[in-house]
């Protein structure tokens, strides 16, 4: 189950498709006209433009989009090891100076580096993730397994964040003036903001199982309902739960909008460290600060892929 997925069946069908693309149209048109029927589609004598250009254009757009998305990420990561960035391309490789600075090694001050904020954010994100497991898994189960009054409304509420971070932030500060910006406030806020990711991934795990059947088998073998849930149903959904954990954790570790609105005091969360670097620091130092988070995301995606997700998304294959 946990082996990396390859899709031999689809590859076969696509290559089969390509051979057809070349040969079949002319053959079929002959039979159609021979039988005196109207062909289903107008066929020009020469090759249609989209046969010649379709694939190159589509692949071209893919490559363009891919490079716009990836090139800045790679450039940022590579620049973080460069000495100067005055020209078109950063030069003077390889130095670890910027990494040492953002990670707080050497003679630099303690407060300027990422470690206190990162430690704080990792703690908050982990607490939010655990709270999300306790809240998201049961509600995903109820929504997948039972029919009940206003189920669709509850579903919408659970899978779509109805409040964006900025606005939840102001509302939080006024509602909980003492606690809104504290660690507890951040945990609860992250939990609500990221809960849809958990509910969606767990739900898609549940949807691929015959929940009623599983539950009834376990119950008829003598398991109580809580035991059936905890030892049979939930373990079956562990891939979805794990994927939800990784996604909610990673997003919470660098959540900015809500944090920016509510947080005051020390230690500053990691996202505020990033903000200070991006808005007000030398280019190469910002690059190193951001690269710390890139490394976290890369690890998250690798783990997600080994448990069957295609990438950093709740959509499963």
């Amino acid at each position: 189950m946990t082996t990396p997925r390859t899709s031999p069946s689809r590859d076969d069908s696509t290559t089969g498709d390509e051979t057809q693309e070349v040969e079949s149209p002319t053959d079929d048109v002959d039979t159609e006209t021979a039988l005196g029927r109207e062909p289903a589609f107008q066929v020009a004598d020469r090759q249609p433009l989209s046969t010649l250009l379709g694939r190159p254009v589509v692949v071209g757009v893919l490559l363009l989009a891919l490079s716009v998305l990836v090139v800045p990420i790679v450039t940022t990561f590579v620049s973080s090891f460069a000495r100067t960035a005055t020209g078109a391309l950063p030069t003077g490789f390889v130095t670890l100076e910027h990494w040492r600075y953002v990670l707080g090694f050497g003679e630099y001050g303690v407060r300027a580096n990422a470690i206190p904020g990162l430690t704080f954010s990792v703690g908050i994100a982990t607490a939010g993730m655990l709270l999300n497991v306790l809240i998201g898994v049961p509600v995903a189960y109820a929504l997948s397994r039972y029919e009940f009054y206003a189920r669709d409304w509850v579903n919408t509420l659970a899978i779509l964040p109805l409040v964006p971070g900025v606005i939840l932030g102001i509302a939080f500060l006024r509602t909980y003036p003492e606690r809104g910006g504290s660690a507890l406030g951040l945990v609860v806020g992250y939990c609500l903001l990221k809960s849809p990711y958990m509910v969606l991934t767990v739900q898609s795990s549940f949807q691929s199982m015959d929940l009623r059947h599983l539950e009834e088998s376990a119950r008829s073998l003598g398991a109580s309902w809580p035991r059936a849930l905890l030892t049979v149903i939930f373990p079956h959904a562990k891939q979805g739960i794990l994927a939800g954990c990784i996604i909610t954790w990673t997003l919470a570790a660098a959540e900015f909008n809500f944090t920016y609105m509510v947080h005051t005091g020390d230690p500053k969360p990691f996202s505020l460290f990033l903000f200070r670097n991006i808005s007000n620091a030398p280019y190469l130092q910002s690059a190193a600060a951001i690269s710390i988070y890139f490394l976290i995301v890369v690890v998250a995606i690798l783990v997600l892929q080994t448990i069957g997700n295609s990438g950093f998304t709740t959509v499963r294959e």
Binding site: P4, L69, V70, P72, I73, A254, L274, I278, I290, G311
Partner: peptide, 24 residues
Amino acid sequence: RVIVAAVSFPIALPGIVVAFMIVV
């Protein structure tokens, strides 16, 4: 697989980091 992972990567990025990508 690599392409899909790369395309999904920016979903994890907070808005401020996206802004930096545009500056890059």
